[in-house]
Design a protein around this nucleic acid. Sequence first.
DNA 1: AGAAAATTTTAAGAAATTTATAAGATAATG
DNA 2: CATTATCTTATAAATTTCTTAAAATTTTCT
Lengths: 229, 229
Amino acid sequence: MNILVVDDEKEIADLIEICLKNANYNVYKYYSSIDVLNNLKTLNIDLAILDVMMPDLDGFSLCQKIRETYNFPIIFVTAKVEDLDKVNGLTIGADDYITKPFQPLELMARVKAQLRRYKNYNQIANQDENIINFRGILINNNTHEFYFNDQKIELTPIEFQILWYLCLNRGNVIKTEDLFMNVWQEKYYENDNNTIMVHIRHLREKMQDTGKKPKYIKTIWGVGYKIEK
Amino acid sequence: MNILVVDDEKEIADLIEICLKNANYNVYKYYSSIDVLNNLKTLNIDLAILDVMMPDLDGFSLCQKIRETYNFPIIFVTAKVEDLDKVNGLTIGADDYITKPFQPLELMARVKAQLRRYKNYNQIANQDENIINFRGILINNNTHEFYFNDQKIELTPIEFQILWYLCLNRGNVIKTEDLFMNVWQEKYYENDNNTIMVHIRHLREKMQDTGKKPKYIKTIWGVGYKIEK
DNA sequence: AGAAAATTTTAAGAAATTTATAAGATAATG
DNA sequence: CATTATCTTATAAATTTCTTAAAATTTTCT
């Protein structure tokens, strides 16, 4: 589990980091929120703990920026005790709010509670599933291999991710926007974005499914794509 | 949204109930936790607010019982301020913990935050709500499929949205204006706007319901359309 | 009841939108 | 530096949506 900690007070950030590392979490610690935004894409964060009062960009704004793209849980930790602040924080997209001074045990309990909800109760599809096998499609997320009718087909990383996500949700339509967000981990600007279509075409070509009515990756007009069960 | 409130202190339970009802939630209020367990199955709860100290069965035990079957969010509200209690509560399956005396606004913010996570970011919680089945009509918002008397019928995006909205409100009249606002997400200018009618006609054609008295999508003269339950 | 007005239905073609294809440009990788 | 992967752009194809006008229906008015 990767946890993001952002606090301009180094002592606090360090304390939180120690607690988290004790509990065996992987911590990414930042003393400034601007730095965070630049690196977020590469980090694959599962939960964030943010301070509210920070010099360059305050926690609320950072939270809003994050929420444009991600939906991992966000916990505010702050010295401000005013209730309105709590309400604000929770309203703009945070999941919990805890005031300094806090008991490390309580913070840990809240972290665990949020992660439990996010990871266990909240699964979009069965997370443990790493090998999917249906209709001649055998796709393995451990080895990143794809067999189609017992024949191995080489996929590029993005092609694999797209196909994997479609298979994980086989039977259901995936909106182009959702697909993009999931594979690219960034916001989707629909005006003039043709890249998914191109990758879909490549996938169809490799699966020799380029007829008028594709049998595998189907187009749902005005919505997105789906792969039939 | 159905919210369960359990507290043996009537004043507290009543106060919480008022707050929730103000915010337009549907409240099921209990003064004893034993009663809850007997009725839980029928209630279709989306979130629970539980007191910890209760005479017959304490909140922690109730929480555990609930978690055996359900995974809607649970918030503890309690007079106990000891930190260990918070940790316990969160550890056994609660999602949040707030101590009395509390600010109603904060409670509401936390309720909203939990519901947001549960409902908006969680596809599984909503899976079932995306399938409507009645009178030979089976419409599935996950797969974007429409079956009419067990026969699959292809719909265009707008046709699907219109039919979905009518089915979601089956039995009730939908004003043309409401229908338009919901599907097109923009303001409706009634002067000379025939587009909904055209789509309705297409839907009726596809359902072979073009007689003098349509059986499915009915015209409510001067108002709009409705689909009979 | 019969005429007039308002509203809805029907039909067909034009316009707009969305998706597919192709090929070259750019970026990333080893 | 060579190779591969990804993105961009332009154009074609497919499909959907809207517009328009006339016909039919229902309601309202006299």
